[in-house]
């Protein structure tokens, strides 16, 4: 709880500020959209958190989102596959991508940055290739399939909880239990802190690292499916662009250290929410020019990380003082 207090406070402040300054922020439609976007990026963030906890990084998330987001409608519409089969293939491809990343990183000892940077380029290139760079969409079909994403659970006054949010909660609960309540979650943290000591303690570190990349790519794939179902169509050249950076930013805001060993699922979800509220604020508050979005987002992340580092230092001094 202590670890996420800072980011929670940030969220509350940003939320309050936007409500006060922006028009229509609290409207039912806007809030639904906010929840939905938070859910989508939260899922990507949870995925990359697994990798970041091991001390790694995954830059290929946006391209996996693109591959899956364009691939699914392409399989359904252009290849006329059945939805079940197409979804199964998409899941399998996502998992295989993570497996390949994990194997290259553990067995060949390549750097995660390099491996996933190549992934970033390769998967987008492949997608633009098989789609011939044409936009892929459901063309008005598959309404019942897309309902999973587009429908809402009505609450009151026209506001409903989007199903994507329910999916996020499910993913978050499972991930939270895995990371906090199982021995494997402990193993991930241990190897993220000190891989060699973890290995010397009898932990199969390679297997755990591979698992984390598989989880990350799987959730990126899930995100891709949800994104494209939500929007209805995907443009291979820009679908999912920069999503890995939003995911990483959410994870870092949520308390994951890029040095490994640290991170909470709740923190990541709140981090994703902060990013979305921030974007929303830039759009809704009239006197903030929309084009400086990246600058604002970057600056806020930087401030949050600096604040976090300063807090950590104070805590560390206090701890050291206590023990001496």
């Amino acid at each position: 709880m202590k670890k996420i207090l800072g980011i929670l406070l940030t969220l509350v402040v940003l939320f309050g500020l936007t409500a006060a300054l922006g028009d229509g922020f609290l409207g039912a439609y806007n809030q639904e959209k906010l929840l939905e976007r938070t859910a989508l990026f939260g899922i990507l963030g949870i995925g990359v958190a697994f990798v970041i906890i091991t001390g790694g990084i995954d830059l290929s998330i946006g391209s996996v989102v693109c591959l899956v987001g364009c691939g699914l409608p392409w399989l359904l519409v252009k290849q006329e596959w059945s939805p079940a089969f197409a979804l199964a293939v998409v899941v399998l491809v996502s998992a295989s991508i993570g497996l390949i990343h994990g194997l290259l990183i553990t067995k060949l000892k390549l750097q995660p940055f390099v491996v996933t940077l190549c992934g970033l380029l390769v998967y987008r290139g492949i997608t633009r290739g098989f789609t011939e760079d044409q936009s892929q969409g459901f063309e008005g079909g598959f309404g019942s399939l897309r309902q999973v994403v587009t429908e809402k659970i009505p609450v009151m006054g026209g506001f409903g909880i989007p199903w994507t949010w329910v999916i996020l909660v499910l993913v978050a609960v499972v991930a939270g239990i895995f990371l906090n309540k199982t021995i494997y979650g402990r193993y991930l943290r241990a190897l993220g802190s000190n891989e060699e000591a973890a290995r010397f303690s009898g932990i199969n570190t390679d297997r755990m690292v591979i698992l984390s990349y598989v989880v990350c790519s799987l959730l990126a794939g899930l995100g891709g499916v949800l994104f494209v179902m939500d929007v209805g169509s995907a443009q291979p050249s820009d679908f999912g662009n920069f999503y890995e950076l939003y995911a990483i930013a959410a994870a870092v805001l949520g308390g994951c250290s890029l040095r490994g060993g640290q991170g909470t699922v709740v923190g990541v979800v709140i981090g994703a929410a902060v990013m979305q509220v921030l974007k929303n604020m830039i759009n809704l508050v009239t006197w903030i020019p929309t084009h400086i979005e990246f600058a604002v987002v970057g600056a806020v992340i930087l401030v949050a990380v600096v604040a976090d580092e300063l807090v950590k230092r104070t805590v560390a001094t206090r701890r050291a003082r206590k023990s001496s």
Binding site: R186, A190, S193, N194, E196, A197, F200, G261
Partner: peptide, 13 residues
């Protein structure tokens, strides 16, 4: 420090 203990985890862990 590099092979034996995980410095940033608790004694318990």
């Amino acid at each position: 420090k590099t092979q034996g203990a995980i410095l940033d985890m608790s004694i318990l862990e």
